[in-house]
């Protein structure tokens, strides 16, 4: 198994996440797409860690743990924001939330 295939898998998953973030209207679905992107990053880190097994194996895993912790914080805040928006606008369509301008 080659490093390249892991990296390609990660890149593909990341691109899928980009597509989701750009296209989805429901804010919860956008958050899910962001989770996909974060997951792609984790795959990438673990892949490199396994490749550089003598030097970076443990550090890569530590980084992944940090990413997971940040992702958990991000999703908590994200859902709180979504709920606040829902309370105020009775809708969580992302393209209707555009009052943060001018």
């Amino acid at each position: 198994m080659r490093l390249m295939s892991i990296l390609m898998l990660s890149a593909a998953l990341f691109s899928i996440g980009i597509y989701g973030v750009l296209v989805r209207r429901n804010a919860v679905l956008v958050l899910m797409s962001i989770e996909l992107m974060l997951n792609a990053v984790n795959i990438n880190l673990i892949g490199f860690g396994t490749w550089l097994r003598d030097t970076a194996f443990v550090n890569a895993q530590a980084f992944v743990l940090f990413v997971i912790a940040i992702a958990a914080a991000e999703v908590g805040i994200g859902i709180a924001i979504v709920l606040a928006i829902y309370r105020n606008k009775a809708s969580i369509a992302v393209d209707e939330v555009d009052s943060m301008k001018w």
């Binding site: 973030v21 750009l22 956008v30 992302v94 393209d95 939330v97 555009d98 009052s99 943060m100 301008k101 001018w102």
Partner: peptide, 10 residues
């Protein structure tokens, strides 16, 4: 400044 977050991401 459309205010639409997805356009900013794009």
């Amino acid at each position: 400044q459309t205010g639409k977050a997805q356009q900013y991401v794009a």
